[in-house]
Design a protein around this nucleic acid. Structure first.
Lengths: 140, 140
DNA sequence: ATCACGCTATCAAAGCTTTTATATCTATAA
DNA sequence: TTATAGATATAAAAGCTTTGATAGCGTGAT
């Protein structure tokens, strides 16, 4: 208990991330998506036919977590899954038209937030913040 | 889709927070706690007898979320809850000896991480990072 | 050809979180 | 005194996440 308010630095990072997630959550909600669903659709649009496991790595979550996200996207008709030709053990995932539309709507709202953040800093400050955060991550 | 890699700045923050949480998770796990449980015990130690709703505000979560956390802590015998004298509608929560011990163990491990992070920066850099993160949070 | 290793998918258990909705009690105002 | 507002607790539904465990399919080394 010899550190003042739990952490100072860690606290600031957590607060920033919390706000960011809250804002993004509200943004993508306009398209009926959650943040993890939005992230999955975004990666899916860039990698058509990717497997669930690969998608999980792309989104930095466990395969099990991605399975649940995909299950919900599937139930909402935003993606399609079909077994791969040769690798029968693999399921190819693709966006549906509805999925593409939802992604487009969500992305428009998400970009607004990113732009607002970016505009709050000068180019030098952006570089500085990115550098400090990278070192923060490395230090752990 | 006119922004490069989703966000750059938001991504760096998220990555830093993700690493921080992963490290903290592993740290407090040595005491058999989760991060939310650790946060609750920490706030509880500083505010003996606090109500669940007040504790939720302290920890920046919803009362319902805190209820679940307290339920689990109660089942593990780390806290006690008893109705307040006048306000029968309120439950006073207190740490048990086991709870105090678990908190002490978890805190020791958590402080190690904070120290490692703090040591990665000069005092000026710490101030700079904190300032940039605060502006990041404000911008949203 | 066979066996082991790695990748894929999935199930189950345990936890955290949010939104929505109820019910009760306290305190203050009409 | 009654009514309203504020605070507390709890329940249910829906989602995300992790760890642990099971099982099938390919590739490469033996």
């Amino acid at each position: 208990m010899d550190m003042p308010v739990e952490e100072r630095l860690g606290l600031a990072v957590k607060r920033a991330e919390q706000r960011l997630m809250a804002a993004k959550h509200a943004a993508v909600k306009t398209a009926g998506l959650t943040v993890p669903q939005y992230a999955a659709l975004l990666a899916l649009a860039a990698n058509p036919g990717i497997s669930a496991a690969a998608l999980a790595r792309e989104c930095l979550v466990t395969p099990q977590a991605m399975t649940v996200v995909l299950k919900n996207l599937l139930e909402h008709g935003l993606i399609e899954r079909a077994p791969h030709q040769w690798h029968r053990t693999m399921l190819e995932t693709h966006l549906t038209d509805a999925g593409r539309e939802a992604l487009h709507t969500a992305d428009a709202a998400a970009v607004v937030i990113e732009r607002r953040i970016a505009d709050a800093f000068s180019p030098d400050e952006r570089d500085s913040l990115r550098d400090l955060l990278d070192r923060f991550t490395q230090a752990i």
